[in-house]
């Protein structure tokens, strides 16, 4: 059963883009569109969008890079450990909770480290893996998406992202404990 699921999952991922491209091309031909010309016309915007998001991305990545290099996450972990124990949140996963919305590669590095230290099939390893899987690099997404249309007044977007992040993490910790422990 698991192998079947795995096979289906791999096939869907591999076929999704080609099927999408094929469908778009066939539909465009049926509509008698000048396919090549229209594609090139649309593709022209790629460069502009890239240029627009550069300053936003530089700002975000510089702040995140400095934060990661400063060891601030370890300082926060040491400071918050007793508090986290009280709500049943493993202190070893706090760095992951802080890193996840900031940096995708940072969170993946932490996951690899946790899997090596505690074992990839340990409860802690699976909790960390679920945390990475159930969320996004929120700040990166907000910076790039809003940056692409030059929006600086982001209203409630950041709060909503963080609330969802916390809800996902707490669920990840609890569900893994219920299923695997």
């Amino acid at each position: 059963m698991r192998e079947l699921l795995q096979g289906v999952a791999t096939t869907v991922s591999a076929w999704a883009v080609p099927v999408m491209i094929g469908t778009i091309l066939v539909a465009a031909v049926l509509r008698r569109l000048p396919v090549y010309e229209e594609f090139v016309e649309g593709a022209k915007d790629g460069f502009q969008v890239g240029l627009r998001i550069i300053p936003f991305l530089v700002a975000m990545l510089v702040a995140m890079g400095m934060f990661r290099a400063s060891g601030a996450i370890d300082v926060l972990k040491a400071a918050a450990a007793p508090l986290l124990g009280a709500i049943g949140f493993p202190p070893d996963l706090l760095p992951m909770a802080i890193m996840r919305p900031l940096s995708g590669s940072g969170a993946q590095g932490l996951l690899a480290e946790i899997a090596k230290t505690f074992g990839p099939d340990s409860l802690l390893g699976r909790q960390a893996a679920t945390m990475v899987g159930c969320s996004e690099t929120t700040f990166y997404v907000l910076a790039v998406y809003f940056g692409s249309v030059a929006i600086t007044r982001t209203r409630h977007a950041v709060f909503v992202g963080l609330i969802a992040e916390v809800a996902g993490f707490l669920t990840a910790i609890w569900v893994c404990r219920a299923v695997f422990a």
């Binding site: 091309l25 229209e38 594609f39 593709a43 790629g46």
Partner: peptide, 13 residues
Amino acid sequence: AMWLGLMRLADKA
């Protein structure tokens, strides 16, 4: 650029 090209086609179609 590639996806914007495809999206324009998908949009027009």
